[in-house]
């Protein structure tokens, strides 16, 4: 009924379809990168990095305050999220082979799937309502809550990669547990943990939804943690949905800057990982 030739034909057709899937997946990526670069490049200038946004109709202006704001908010997020996330990860790797460890691990996994906009509302309730205003701090708290679960999971995996022999050698020499953990295990895993931190910072820098009603936006420079603060992502959103053509151009240029920021963070993470492997 099914001749060998027919079966071979089916085999090749299916192989072709799977290869086609690769092509289909790459088309949007290439299109997106090409457009961000080609449409964004024209607007790049020194003042775009240093100036504050210009009102509609005026030429010039930039997103300097939004770039600074993104770095500021992400910095706050790191200050809160990195110790908690890395610490929880070290706990899971060092003491996590218990029921409690399993529960924490599972909850961290599930939390990493919670939509970021939901986390934004949580930060609103935690910070914006008590302070009675939108603030960089609220944005930082939102991003920190997003960072903790993923950072915990990746830190755990990296700490677990440290060979047991190292730990045993240290303990055999009479070094106490805590010093073994800190000076031997964590020091060995440090490069990997740095990579994990950089990747989660890259992810946090690209978040928009949790910032919409926490750090809100600001047309001016701001360095106070209790004031609304501009961010690159929210600025892109506002420019993109505006009715003005020149603002659309600014959205593309800002997107190019955002991609460069996120990309260089991710690249730095990969480089740290590679250097450590050697």
């Amino acid at each position: 009924m099914n001749s060998l030739a027919a079966r071979r034909a089916v085999n090749w057709i299916m192989t072709g379809l799977c290869a086609l899937a690769l092509a289909v997946a790459l088309v949007p990526l290439v299109s997106l990168l090409w457009l961000v670069i080609s449409r964004g490049f024209a607007g790049l200038s020194w003042s775009f990095f240093t100036a504050i946004p210009a009102p509609v109709g005026e030429t010039g202006g930039g997103v300097g305050n939004a770039i600074a704001g993104t770095l500021y908010i992400v910095g706050i997020a790191c200050a809160i999220g990195v110790p908690l996330g890395v610490g929880a990860g070290v706990y899971l790797a060092e003491r996590g082979d218990t029921r409690l460890g399993d529960a924490i691990r599972f909850i961290a996994e599930v939390l990493s799937g919670v939509p970021s906009i939901v986390v934004g509302i949580v930060a609103y309730g935690l910070v914006v309502i008590p302070m009675r205003r939108f603030s960089a701090l609220a944005g930082g708290v939102a991003l920190a809550v997003l960072m903790v679960p993923t950072l915990a999971r990746s830190t755990e995996e990296l700490v677990r990669l440290v060979p047991h022999a190292l730990r045993e050698a240290s303990l055999a020499l009479g070094v106490p547990q805590w010093r073994t953990s800190l000076r031997v295990v964590l020091r060995t895993a440090l490069g990997g943990i740095m990579t994990a931190i950089l990747l989660s910072v890259a992810r946090a820098s690209g978040e928009t939804a949790p910032l919409l009603f926490t750090s809100l936006n600001n047309q001016y420079w701001n360095w106070r943690a209790d004031q609304p603060t501009a961010s690159l992502t929210v600025q892109i959103f506002n420019y993109a949905v505006s009715p003005y053509n020149e603002w659309h151009d600014k959205a593309w240029t800002s997107a190019l800057i955002l991609l460069l920021l996120v990309g260089s963070l991710a690249l730095a993470g990969r480089l740290v990982a590679r250097r450590r492997v050697r």
Binding site: L35, R203, E207, V241, L258
Partner: peptide, 18 residues
């Protein structure tokens, strides 16, 4: 992995104008 790392607001921009 690049596709996974692109911020969603940039996807939105691409979606809106392309």
């Amino acid at each position: 992995s690049l596709l996974a790392g692109i911020p969603s607001v940039v996807y939105g921009l691409w979606g809106l104008f392309v």
